[in-house]
Nucleic acid binder design. Structure first.
Length: 416
RNA sequence: GUCUGGGUAGUCUAGUGGUUAGGAUAGCGGGUUGUGGUCCCGUUGACCCGAGUUCGAAUCUCGGCCCGGACCCCA
């Protein structure tokens, strides 16, 4: 017998799931402080819904099949399309509609490093508001999530309208914009010269190239203003940064080379990357036209998608705990098992994470297990403890032990 | 989509035509009777699948499945 997981799909063992859970819970807690509420939608949607307004590429990567009633269905490939369906189906929703949603999405595509056919997405979006406060709020909230996770993040900020003006200024025909954006987006990877080459390779004239290179080389908004004049994108960006100041957000940087691949962005765009290692850990932006295309309702939208996989990769080296158990209640001999279970259950009732031995192991082996699982404390129960009516509490990190009464145990391992 | 490398226990790896397929690490048990993360001993456990070549295949050939790298594309 040799069963495999389906191509491109993975198992997540407890050790990994604890890290993932931490990411989700941290994000959830922070976002709810800002008034974002959870949303969930089915994994399966009608193929019609999923492919309604999407290009050929998406259709190719769709996990699609017929259900037993012959209906054509498919697994969602992102969380944006299902959410627009929700918006279309629920006209009563009060605006702004602020939701976060995390879950699995599926794409039947090539498998690459960090890219699988089943993956987690975590999206945060605000619907219904045109104001730059909304965008700033999302940036602030998201940066708080990263901070809580202990990541050193810088948020790069730009505006698609600035990019559009840059294209006009450089005299690049609209047909080639998308190509140009992709080239510019590679600045980080390939440098100014690399971008120039990319632009030429994509059929953009030398003249235009020079202008573009000059523009993405500028680092101050004022210089850009002088070249482009007072464009709407710059105005929006100034508004956004003004609000960011009010949110007391400092770890962002304006980067006019930031384009992001998706062509549905219409205003501000963001990308979060780790300062130490140059890794993108999430991105987003404003997409005011997409919901109308998908749902028929004219709803402005701005959002952000946390890159669960890269965040996970960054965090997994840090955490070694294989269990969320705080205390293990050990039994010296099987005859004390009932006492052990009794105490554990009282502690659980008080909200503590407690484990006991289920394998009939010796004290030595129990401690071995505790050590392997990274459980920080052990309470030992044996003859001595019963006689003295006290418990032995062992700190696994220091190896120090002391005897305490029940009340004290409850205090020790209570909240905090 | 193009090019390319690879699949030996859960993980890493030795073995290139005849081996009881070796080791490391993890798992489980033990090193007596109440103390882990060190050490020692024991034990479970593998040649991706199928066909072919051969007296004989982990090893050679072909196909499939799976995994990885580069570019393209996409996030």
């Amino acid at each position: 017998m040799n069963y495999q997981t389906v191509k491109g799909m993975r198992d997540f063992l407890p050790e990994e799931m604890l890290v993932r859970k931490k990411i989700f819970e941290t994000a959830q807690t922070v976002l709810e402080k800002y008034g974002f509420a959870p949303l969930d939608t089915p994994a399966l949607e009608y193929e019609e819904t999923l492919t309604a307004k999407s290009g050929e590429d998406v259709k190719k990567e769709l996990f699609a099949f017929k259900d037993k009633g012959g209906r054509k269905v498919g697994l969602r490939f992102d969380l944006t399309v299902p959410t627009s369906r929700v918006l279309a189906n629920n006209p009563h929703l009060v605006m702004p509609f602020k939701r976060y949603q995390y879950g699995k999405a599926w794409r039947y595509g090539e498998i690459k490093k960090g890219r699988y056919r089943e993956f987690y997405q975590f999206d945060i979006d605000s619907f219904g508001s045109n104001s730059m406060v909304t965008d700033a709020e999302i940036v602030a909230a998201v940066l708080e999530v990263y901070k809580k996770l202990g990541l050193n993040i810088i948020m790069r900020v730009n505006n698609r309208k600035i990019l559009a003006d840059m294209m006009d200024y450089a005299g690049i025909p609209k047909k080639l914009w998308q190509e140009a954006f992709r080239a510019i987006d590679k600045l980080d990877k390939v440098g100014l010269k690399g971008v120039e080459k990319e632009l030429v390779d994509r059929g953009i004239s030398k003249e235009s190239c020079k202008k573009i290179i000059r523009l993405i080389g500028t680092d101050s908004l004022n210089k850009l203003k002088k070249i482009l004049g007072g464009c709407e994108g710059i105005k929006e960006l100034e508004e956004l940064t003004g609000y960011l100041k009010s949110f007391n957000v400092k770890n962002y940087v304006i980067d006019v080379s930031l384009a992001r691949g998706l062509d549905y962005y219409t205003g501000p765009v963001f990308e979060a990357s780790c300062k130490d290692i140059k890794v993108s850990v999430g991105g987003g932006g404003r997409y005011d036209n997409l919901i109308k295309i998908l749902s028929g309702r004219d709803v402005p939208a701005t959002g952000f998608s946390l890159g669960i996989e890269p965040i996970f990769e960054l965090l997994k080296s840090k955490s070694k705990q294989a269990s969320s158990t705080k205390v293990f209640v050990a039994s010296v001999k099987p005859e004390f098992d009932k006492k052990v279970v009794g105490l554990a259950q009282k502690m659980r009732k008080a909200g503590m994470n407690v484990e006991t031995d289920l394998m009939g192991r010796s004290l030595k082996k129990q401690l071995d297990y505790v050590s392997k699982k990274g459980i920080p404390f052990v309470i030992i129960i044996g003859e001595k403890e019963l006689k003295e009516k006290k418990f032995t509490v062992r700190d696994m990190k220091t190896g120090k032990q002391r005897k305490t009464g029940f009340e004290e145990v409850m205090k020790l391992f209570g909240k905090g």
